[in-house]
Write a protein that binds this DNA or RNA. Sequence first.
DNA 1: GCCAACGTTGGC
DNA 2: GCCAACGTTGGC
Length: 149
Amino acid sequence: MRYWLLKSEPGDYAIDDLARDRRDRWTGVRNYQARNFMTRDMQIGDGALFYHSNCSVPGVYGVARVCAAAAPDETQFDPGSKYYDPRATADKPRWFCVQIAFVRKLRRPWTLAEMRQTPALAEMHILRRGNRLSITPVSADEWRLLSRR
DNA sequence: GCCAACGTTGGC
DNA sequence: GCCAACGTTGGC
């Protein structure tokens, strides 16, 4: 059982969208490191913190769970998608996505500012300068703190 | 809107 | 394989 932080811009896909859909494919990841986390390390049942980025109050807004292992991301084959990748073929897909299921919203979000002020979270990837990775591992201690609000 | 940080691309 | 140029991310 591992734990992850998944970033999403709420204008594109917010925790309320996941709450409505109940589960969804985590499509659109176009970074090799993040992809490798999904294909190599994520397992069904893993916990995920749903983080809103690039918005007025960035932070963790909810909890989800990995509910299906990585499979080819269909958006890479769709010329109409902004995630289309002409280099990908059905034989050799380049991008993959897991599915996640909604668990719950936090009663009160953990804002980025608040996370920065919390010594127990000081080692988190998300707090490092220049961090851009959309999927990062979270320790069990960090998970306990952030997921129980 | 600004800009630092980072990943990717492509010429050599 | 190197590395400069470029595009993107994302907090502020």
